[in-house]
Structure formats: C-alpha cells, structure tokens
C-alpha cells in the first residue's frame, strides 16, 4: 500500500512537471498554430542556466529559477518576433511546413551550440532538503515543495487566462483571431507574448528537471516530442487537458517503471496511441 501511494505521488509529480512544460507548448499552438519543435530547448536552457548560476553562487535553485524568468520571457518573445512573425502571413499549409523547418533548425542549432559551450555531459543540481516520515510514508520536502509550486503555477496560469486582459486577449486570439483583431487586440504582440510565456513555463520546468532529475544539451527534441504528445492526448489548447494528459503519462511511467524500468516509456506511448484511437481530438479537445 505504501508503495502504491509512493508511486502515485511520484507519478503525479512527474506528470505535473510534464504538464507545466506542455501547457506552454499548447498555448503557443493555440495562438499561432505553430508546432514549436524548439520548445524543449527553452526547457533545457532554463535548467542549464539554473545549473550554471547554482554552481557559481550556491543560491537556492528555485530562487535562481525565479531570477531567470524575465530572461526566459525575453528569449521566447524575440524568438517569435524574429523567427515566427515573418511566416504569419503565409498560407496555412506553407506556414505549417515553414514553422516545422524553422523550429527544427533552431532546435538543432541551440542544442549543438549549448553542448559546444557548456559540454555535452548530463548536468544536475545537487540540492537536497530534509525528508520526513508521515506514518509509514517517506516524503521528501523537496518533492513536496515542487508539487506545491506546480499546483500554485497551474492555478496562477488559470487566473491569468481568465482574469487579466492580456490573458483574455490570448484566449480570444486562440478562439477567433479575426474577432480578436476587431476588438483591437494586437495579435502579433499577443503571439510574441505567448511565446514568452511558453518559454517561461518551459524554463521553470527546466529548473525542476535540473534539481529533481538532470538535463543534457541534446535532450531538447526528445522532450519536445513527449510534450507534443501530451498536448495531443489532452486536446490542443486545453489547460485541464495538458494537466490530465501529463498526469496520465506520469502515472503510467512511474507505475510501469516500478515493475519493469524499461517498459515505462513504452507504456506511456502505448497509452497515448490507444487514447487517440478512441478520442481522435484528445481527451478535452473539441
């Protein structure tokens, strides 16, 4: 029983982490119809900078994560401004193809430059916090903190999208871009802002990765693909979809891996394919 609870907790944490990064990707897809294959690079960069600053200063890595947020936003913003905006006026089919090329090229580029400058090896921040027993349950403060932060962020994003004007403009752009323009939304700016937010969420996820797991410069495409799968599973553009999709994948991985470590990933993809066969537009898609 304890083992079961431990597994579920681990799975939910893993899933929350997935959801965090996946949601940024989902927002970007909703607003600009772009499959951003470079999303994982933003995650990797967030983790990497956290690692570098931590190595130099020894500050609390989550605090570092907070400090690099503005830079992450800026990075995402200019990524859209200079690489994506020129494609915005093109025909749908052409734009989908061009955006695949541009983001794939950017992903290869960022990954390789990073591994050249910072070394190709895996990196992790060795930061620990005390653990405690709750009854028979072994609970690590670090994981608990991560979970609380992820939950807080999810609620935060939800309110941002519901209550702020920019958040609403973002949803409006997703639902009807022409309608958004008609009420005076600068949709190009909203696109760039969305990329900024996506990059921020990815970099926070990167910080969690580097603290709880590890990062390496060539991880980008692999995690991007996983997040793309999660948002398809949950339904593109749906916050609750990304969350549920992430948690389903996280739980599957953690439970199956307990019985056979090799089969965790396989089971995750198997579940994904099965769900898509039953619900072609994802769990919460329309």
């Amino acid at each position: 029983m304890e083992i079961a609870i431990q597994l579920v907790i681990a799975g939910i944490l893993q899933g929350g982490l997935y959801a965090l990064a996946a949601f940024g990707l989902s927002l970007i897809f909703g607003v600009s119809n772009v499959l951003n294959l470079a999303h994982g690079e933003f995650l990797m960069l967030g983790g990497l900078f956290c690692f570098l600053i931590f190595s130099a200063t020894g500050l609390n890595p989550f605090l570092i994560g907070l400090m690099i947020l503005p830079f992450a936003f800026f990075l995402g913003y200019i990524f859209d401004r200079f690489l994506m905006r020129p494609l915005a006026g093109k025909k749908e089919h052409i734009r989908l193809m061009s955006s695949i090329l541009v983001t794939l090229g950017a992903a290869l580029c960022i990954g390789d430059v990073t591994s050249f400058l910072a070394g190709a090896e895996e990196k992790g921040v060795d930061y620990s916090m005390p653990s405690f027993f709750w009854g028979d349950l072994y609970i690590s403060y670090l994981r608990l903190l991560a979970m609380v932060m992820i939950a807080g962020l999810t609620v935060g994003i939800h309110y941002y999208l519901k209550k702020t004007y920019t958040g609403r403009a973002l949803r409006a752009t997703t639902q009807n871009i022409r309608g958004a323009m008609l009420v005076g939304v600068d949709t190009s700016r909203i696109r760039s802002v969305t990329f900024g937010i996506g990059s921020m969420l990815a970099s926070i996820a990167g910080v969690f990765y580097v603290v709880l797991l590890s990062i390496s410069p060539d991880m980008g495409l692999t995690v991007t693909i996983k997040y793309l799968c999660i948002i398809v599973l949950g339904g593109l553009g749906s916050l609750i979809g990304s969350l549920v999709g992430g948690v389903i994948l996280g739980l599957t991985e953690s439970i199956v891996s307990y019985y056979n470590p090799h089969w965790g990933q396989t089971a995750a993809f198997l579940i994904l394919v099965l769900i898509l066969l039953i619900r072609p537009k994802g769990l919460f898609g329309k």
């Binding site: 609403r168 949803r171 409006a172 639902q175 009807n176 022409r178 309608g179 958004a180 008609l182 329309k286």
Partner: peptide, 13 residues
C-alpha cells in the same frame, strides 16, 4: 469598429 457578417465571437467564452 466593424461588426462582421460572420460575427466572429469567441465561442468558448
């Protein structure tokens, strides 16, 4: 301000 023929509302709001 234009009110378009297709209305262009935000359906999920």
């Amino acid at each position: 301000i234009q009110i378009p023929e297709e209305r262009m509302l935000f359906p999920d709001m």
